[in-house]
């Protein structure tokens, strides 16, 4: 393509983008946001209920937090397994993705999906397809923060 043809193509692309933007329906942001707020809030509220209960039993704050995370992950795994969590996700969007239950759902859904390719390279390898990137960036930032602290305190 010579320079003029390239420029023409760019203009064509821009014009087409304008046409698409004009026609393509936008997501119903208000409805999505209400769903996300309510579902996300309820998941966190449920977790808080359990934390408060464990604290009342005399458990330490850190242990209670870990225990509740585990319970929430279990619940997410269960509801993913029986095929309910994805139905919730269609409506709730970020409301069921952002909480740790969404993280668990991504892990469990990947593991279940690739079972038919075997337990080692199916389940074992694919279980981290979404969780892997998440942990990589979480650990990377955590180690960086740790190193900065070591550097500052020496």
């Amino acid at each position: 393509m010579n320079v003029d043809a390239k420029k023409m193509h760019q203009i064509e692309i821009q014009e087409y983008q304008n046409l698409v933007d004009g026609i393509k329906p936008k997501p119903d942001i208000l409805k999505n946001c209400i769903w996300a707020f309510l579902v996300g809030g309820m998941i966190c509220g449920l977790a808080q209920l359990m934390v408060n209960y464990l604290l009342a039993l005399g458990m330490s704050r850190i242990d209670a937090g870990s225990a509740v995370s585990c319970i929430m992950i279990f619940l997410a795994a269960f509801f993913t397994g029986i095929g309910i969590y994805d139905e919730l996700g269609k409506r709730a969007g970020a409301g069921s993705i952002v909480p740790i239950t969404g993280f668990a759902n991504a892990i469990v859904a990947s593991a279940m999906e690739y079972k038919r390719e075997g337990y080692i390279f199916g389940v074992g390898a694919r279980i981290f397809s979404v969780a892997g990137p998440t942990l990589v960036f979480g650990f990377a930032v955590a180690v960086l923060v740790g190193l900065i602290k070591v550097f500052l305190s020496s």
């Binding site: 942001i29 999505n32 946001c33 769903w35 996300a36 707020f37 309510l38 579902v39 996300g40 809030g41 998941i43 966190c44 509220g45 977790a47 969007g93 970020a94 409301g95 993705i97 952002v98 909480p99």
Partner: peptide, 10 residues
């Protein structure tokens, strides 16, 4: 929790 999820939705 609701607000944090709402930000994600936006």
């Amino acid at each position: 929790g609701g607000v944090l999820c709402l930000i994600g939705q936006l």
